[in-house]
Computed example of a mutant assay.
Amino acid sequence: MDLALWIAAGLLAAVALVGGISKTVVSKEKLAATAGGRWTADAGRGFVKTLGVLELLASAGLILPAVVGIAPIMVPVTAACWALLMVGAVSTHVRYRDGAKFVVVTSAYLALAAFVAWGRFGPESFVA
């Protein structure tokens, strides 16, 4: 179970890192032209950049606290916050009719985040 939680957290951290970099570096106009990114055309530039920074922080929060042993409780807290962010992402993809592919993938990220939060708050907690 511990290995599965590490793999899930690592995958989510990679997804958050890529998403965070793209939202903070790529222009809003280019993001709006990509598949699944139409929502950025209706969002403010600051909002998109803020989401990018939050995703970058999530990528660190899913791994680093456990690796360095400082405040490891932040791993399940970050996973729970990521799950909430994915609820918003799923509803946004549904609202913008981005297609089932985006809804399914984002729902999978939501499920992985819920798994990590459950596992690290519960049976495989870092706090003894």
Rank of each mutant, 00 (worst) to 15 (best):
M1W: 07
D2M: 05
D2P: 00
L3D: 06
L3G: 00
A4W: 10
A4S: 13
L5I: 15
A8P: 07
G10L: 11
L12Q: 06
A13Y: 07
A13V: 12
A14V: 14
A16Q: 12
L17F: 14
L17P: 04
V18Q: 07
V18A: 15
G19R: 08
G20Y: 09
I21H: 01
K23F: 08
K23Y: 07
K23H: 15
T24Y: 05
T24C: 14
V25H: 05
V25E: 02
V26L: 13
S27Y: 08
K30E: 13
K30D: 13
L31S: 07
A32V: 13
A33Y: 10
A33C: 07
A35Q: 15
A35V: 13
A35L: 13
G36V: 13
R38S: 09
R38Q: 13
R38V: 07
W39V: 12
T40P: 01
A41G: 03
A41V: 05
A43C: 05
A43S: 12
G44K: 10
R45L: 09
R45F: 04
R45M: 01
V48F: 01
K49D: 00
K49C: 01
K49R: 15
T50H: 00
L51I: 14
G52K: 05
V53K: 00
V53L: 12
V53Y: 03
L54Y: 10
L54P: 00
L54F: 12
E55S: 11
L56I: 11
L56R: 03
L57C: 13
L57Y: 02
L57V: 14
G61A: 07
I63Q: 00
L64I: 15
A66D: 08
V67D: 00
V67W: 04
V67F: 02
V67R: 00
V68G: 00
G69R: 12
G69D: 10
A71F: 13
I73Y: 11
V75R: 02
V75I: 14
P76E: 08
P76M: 10
T78Y: 04
T78K: 04
A79F: 01
A80G: 08
A80Y: 07
C81Q: 05
A83M: 07
L84A: 13
G88A: 10
G88Y: 07
A89E: 04
V90D: 02
S91H: 06
T92F: 02
V94M: 08
Y96N: 05
Y96S: 02
G99V: 13
A100G: 01
A100N: 09
A100K: 12
F102W: 14
F102E: 05
V103N: 02
V103R: 03
V103G: 01
V104I: 15
V104L: 14
V105C: 00
T106F: 01
S107V: 09
A108W: 09
L112D: 03
A113C: 04
A113D: 06
F115G: 02
F115L: 15
V116D: 05
W118M: 06
G119W: 05
F121D: 04
P123H: 11
P123V: 14
E124D: 12
E124K: 11
F126D: 11
V127N: 09
A128S: 12
